[in-house]
Amino acid sequence: EPELVFKVRVRTKDGRELEIEVSAEDLEKLLEALPDIEEVEIEEVEP
């Protein structure tokens, strides 16, 4: 069974934007590691 992958769009407080694809596990780590995120948009990517 393929692992869930999420497309994550992040905007930081200083206005930088970042778009990455991460696994569910990595997404959890990412959110814990970035306390200064202003906006996060997450969508599931079809395998």
Rank of each mutant, 00 (worst) to 15 (best):
V22Y: 01
E43R: 12
V5F: 05
D14N: 06
R9V: 06
P35M: 14
R11G: 01
F6W: 03
P47M: 10
D36N: 09
S23Q: 05
K29L: 08
K13D: 02
K13E: 03
R9S: 03
V45K: 08
L27V: 03
E17C: 15
A33Y: 09
L34C: 12
E38H: 08
E19D: 06
L34M: 10
R9A: 02
V45L: 12
T12L: 15
E46I: 13
K29C: 07
V5G: 09
V10A: 03
I20T: 03
E28G: 10
P47I: 12
A33I: 09
V5P: 02
S23M: 07
E32G: 09
E46C: 11
E41Y: 13
L30F: 12
R16P: 01
E43N: 08
D36L: 05
E25K: 13
E41W: 15
E19Y: 14
E25S: 13
E28F: 13
S23V: 05
L18Y: 15
R16H: 08
K7S: 02
F6R: 15
P35E: 14
V5R: 15
D36F: 07
P35Y: 13
R11A: 02
E39D: 09
E17N: 10
G15E: 00
V8N: 00
P47N: 10
E1P: 12
E39G: 09
E1F: 13
E44K: 11
D14S: 06
V10F: 11
K7D: 03
E25D: 09
R9F: 00
D36R: 04
E25W: 06
V22W: 01
L34H: 05
R11K: 09
L4I: 07
E38A: 09
V22C: 11
E3V: 06
L34V: 05
E46V: 12
R11Q: 03
K13M: 05
V40L: 11
D26L: 08
D36T: 04
P2C: 12
I20S: 02
E3S: 05
E32I: 08
T12M: 14
V40I: 13
V45F: 09
E17M: 14
L34W: 12
E41R: 09
L34Y: 11
I20N: 00
E32N: 12
A24C: 11
L18T: 04
V22F: 02
F6S: 11
R11L: 04
E17F: 14
P35W: 14
E38K: 06
V45I: 12
E43L: 15
L27G: 00
R16V: 10
I37Q: 04
R9P: 00
A24Q: 08
T12K: 03
S23L: 07
E41Q: 10
I37F: 13
L34I: 12
V45E: 05
T12V: 04
V22K: 00
E32R: 14
E46G: 10
V40R: 02
